[in-house]
Structure formats: structure tokens, C-alpha cells
Amino acid sequence: MPWNLPEPMLSAPVPQPHLRPGWAAEAKWDGFRALLSADAGKVELRSRRGTEMGPAFPEIVAGAAQLPDATALDGVM
């Protein structure tokens, strides 16, 4: 499966978030930014710069194998 996820959205510090009705915000905690791609039972977990992270987080890779095909996730672990 080729690595073809979109570029990750990067956070920016603001003194007070401007939230539209129905929106929510959360504090940014330190952690690892990761992009996950799951398709046909194959999972790729990479840093935002493309470094393979799967071997360091086997439990995430194993759980993500159950996701529907063509799933892409962007988050912090």
C-alpha cells in the first residue's frame, strides 16, 4: 500500500480559541504525532515526517487492522 495520506494539520498556539457554535477544542498535550493508514488489513503508522512508527506501537497497529478499508487517521499518541 503506498503511503499517500494528506499532510498533517499542525497546531498553532492561540490565547483563546475562537469556536463556532457546535465546535469543541482541547489542550495540546505532548506526545507523538502519528498518521495511520489502514487498507485491506495492512496498516502503516508513521510520524508526520514519514518515520515508520509501527514497531514502537504494535498494539495500535494490531487494533487498527480491524478498521474499514481506506481508513486514515491523524492524531497524537
Rank of each mutant, 00 (worst) to 15 (best):
M1G: 05
M1S: 07
P2I: 02
P2L: 06
P2H: 03
N4S: 10
N4K: 06
L5P: 02
L5N: 06
P6T: 09
E7M: 04
E7V: 05
E7G: 05
M9V: 10
L10P: 02
S11H: 03
S11N: 13
A12L: 15
A12Y: 15
P13A: 15
P13R: 15
P13Y: 15
P13L: 15
P13G: 14
V14Q: 11
V14I: 11
P15Y: 00
P15S: 07
Q16K: 11
Q16R: 08
Q16I: 11
P17N: 12
P17Y: 12
R20Y: 13
G22I: 06
G22Q: 00
W23A: 04
W23T: 04
A24N: 07
A24R: 11
A24F: 10
A24I: 00
A24E: 11
A25G: 09
A27H: 14
A27W: 13
A27D: 13
K28D: 08
K28Y: 05
K28T: 09
W29A: 12
D30A: 13
G31I: 12
F32W: 12
F32I: 07
R33D: 10
R33V: 05
R33P: 12
R33L: 09
R33F: 07
A34D: 04
L35Y: 04
L35D: 05
S37Q: 08
S37K: 08
A38S: 12
A40I: 05
G41D: 12
G41P: 04
G41L: 14
K42A: 13
K42C: 10
K42H: 13
K42P: 03
V43I: 05
E44M: 09
E44Q: 10
L45Y: 06
L45W: 03
L45H: 03
L45R: 04
R46F: 06
S47A: 13
R48M: 03
R49M: 14
R49A: 13
G50W: 02
T51M: 08
M53R: 06
M53D: 06
M53V: 07
G54P: 00
G54R: 11
P55E: 08
P55T: 00
P55L: 03
P55F: 07
A56F: 14
A56D: 12
A56L: 14
A56Q: 14
P58K: 03
P58M: 04
P58H: 04
E59R: 07
I60Q: 01
I60N: 02
V61C: 04
A62F: 03
G63P: 01
A64I: 02
Q66A: 13
L67K: 01
L67M: 08
P68Y: 02
P68G: 04
P68F: 02
D69S: 06
A70G: 00
L73W: 06
D74N: 08
D74E: 12
G75Y: 11
G75N: 09
G75E: 07
G75D: 07
V76Q: 14
